[in-house]
Simulated scan of single mutants.
Amino acid sequence: MSLKKASIIIFIILLIDQISKIYIKTHFQLGEDVTVFSWFKIAFIENDGMAWGTKLSDFVSFISDETAKLVLTLFRIVAVTGIAFWLIDVTKKKRSKTLIFAISIIFAGALGNIIDSVFYGVLFNDSVMQVASFLPEEGGYAKVFHGNVVDMLHFPIWSGVMPDNLPLIGGKYFSFFDPVFNVADMAISTGIGILIVFNKKAFEESNNSTNLGTIKT
């Protein structure tokens, strides 16, 4: 797969991700949800930290939430820069389509969430008890690099009390699947899943590389 084709994949994922986030941000109040099916809801939340809403300041107590947010955003930028160089490298070396596709969607997802973290704080005002406005006259809800990531996809597939005869969890309330996420998160998770499940196929040497090695030998 060429870098051009990879770029098209990245662009499509970014476009879907940002359109969905901007729509939710400008049509929903924070905490508002709409039931599409019994097992699927559009639920608007904002994530100001890492996965599952965890904050860096939860682990490093001597730094403020604001500093932790800045550090996390800068770390994301460094990470996505590294992924970009990795993608360029594997396309130049004509590695497997599986590997290039996986890296492409991981990069697209990471970049999508970085856009939220870097720019959304200045592009939108607060969503608490109101629908946010794009480029509000009074300014945004946060400084550059301090924005929150918009999440909206919720799949409450099953919930209930577990049977009493089950060890450890018997008689306890359980729900699957609680996390709320976005298109960018889906892209990252899918890309990582591909690298894990199809590891051998993803990291196999291409025929071109093998042939070149044979000729040189």
Rank of each mutant, 00 (worst) to 15 (best):
Y173I: 00
S209R: 11
S64G: 13
N199V: 01
G53E: 00
P136G: 08
L30Q: 12
D151L: 04
V90A: 02
V36Q: 04
A142F: 05
S7K: 02
I10Y: 07
L14M: 13
V80F: 10
F174K: 05
S175Y: 05
F44C: 06
G171F: 07
L14G: 11
K143A: 06
V150W: 02
D151E: 12
G170W: 05
N211W: 15
F40Q: 07
D164M: 13
F124P: 00
I103D: 01
N208W: 13
F59Y: 15
I12S: 11
G109Y: 07
V71L: 15
M1I: 10
A184H: 14
D17F: 04
A184K: 09
A187K: 14
I24V: 14
N199I: 02
I19W: 09
V78E: 02
F203C: 05
M152Q: 05
F40V: 12
N207P: 01
I115A: 05
I16E: 01
R95G: 02
K4H: 03
L72T: 12
M186L: 15
N182T: 04
K200M: 06
D17G: 11
Y173L: 02
Y120T: 09
A108L: 05
F62I: 03
G170F: 08
V131R: 08
L166H: 04
L135R: 02
V122L: 13
T26R: 12
I16N: 02
T98S: 06
F75E: 00
D17L: 03
E46P: 10
N113S: 06
S7L: 12
F75H: 00
F119T: 01
V161W: 06
F174I: 14
I157T: 10
N125V: 07
E205R: 11
S38K: 14
F145W: 14
T91V: 13
M1N: 08
T73M: 13
S2R: 10
D48V: 02
A187M: 15
T35K: 12
F176H: 08
D33I: 00
L74E: 02
G82H: 04
T67E: 07
I16P: 00
M162I: 10
R76W: 06
G109P: 14
D151G: 09
I103N: 04
N125G: 12
K41W: 05
V131F: 10
A142M: 09
N211D: 14
L99N: 10
G49D: 03
